[in-house]
Amino acid sequence: MTDELLYKYDENKYNLGVLPDEAEKALIEGNKRFVAGRFLKKDFSEEIRLRLSRDLQRPLAVVLTCADSRVAPEVIFDQGLGDIFVVRNAGNVVDSIVLGSIEYAVDQFKIPLILVLGHEKCGAVRCAVDGTETSQNISTIMDKIIPTVKSIKSSNMNDDVEEIASKVEYENARQSTKRILESSIISRFVEEKKVKVITAKYHLKTGKVEILK
């Protein structure tokens, strides 16, 4: 069945009249293919690379996710070259550089969807939960996650460390979404219904992306 599915680059496929809900559906359908092992065949030929080098970017979505090697957006959403504008760091946290990257992408390329993707067994989250002593640079990341850790621990005092970490993974992704929505540029696009911002969590064992309401 896999050979029957062929990915063909279409320079007009995305961004030109694509609605946020349609972009979200495309990612969800791609993840379903990933889970089922029914990947579209990708064209990475010289012709495609040359076409992409000439054309303005037209990604389907911006994806902010963790730098974890097991979490590769283009793979888990079964997309090709030029389809996703990816921003990654340990813990999928938002600082001024991350927010600027997202604002730039949405403003310049008219991308209709922003997806914040947390994931199962996040090392950065576990580091924050355990209170591990770190370097000054790593602490900069931890400072973004620790307030969420404190909040979750205070309201879930009977949970074990694994349960706490899992809940922090969910809430940390939501907090990143909240910070993105605080951007005047992003919030304006959202109000105009040109952009949708959603939150999700990737499950390593199943490969499923869970969209958070």
Rank of each mutant, 00 (worst) to 15 (best):
V63R: 01
P112Y: 00
K32G: 05
D68I: 14
A61I: 10
L115F: 06
E171V: 13
E47N: 06
D130G: 13
S69E: 07
R38Q: 15
L16Q: 12
S184I: 14
K208Y: 11
T132A: 15
V98N: 12
R70F: 08
K150H: 05
R88H: 04
R51M: 08
K193Q: 06
I180M: 07
L5S: 06
I111F: 03
L204Y: 06
I138K: 03
L52D: 14
A124D: 03
Q136K: 08
E24N: 07
E169M: 01
K110M: 07
C66V: 08
N158V: 14
R126D: 11
E11Y: 04
R58Y: 07
V62G: 04
E11W: 03
L181M: 06
I146K: 02
K25T: 13
E169T: 03
L6A: 14
S184T: 15
V197Q: 07
D83G: 03
S139G: 08
Y170I: 08
C66A: 09
A124W: 03
L113K: 01
E46L: 13
G17S: 12
D160V: 14
N12C: 15
V161I: 09
K32P: 04
A67L: 14
V209D: 02
I180D: 02
E169F: 01
E74T: 06
K194G: 13
N137R: 15
F39Y: 14
T65N: 02
A128K: 10
I48L: 06
N31S: 08
I84Y: 00
L113C: 04
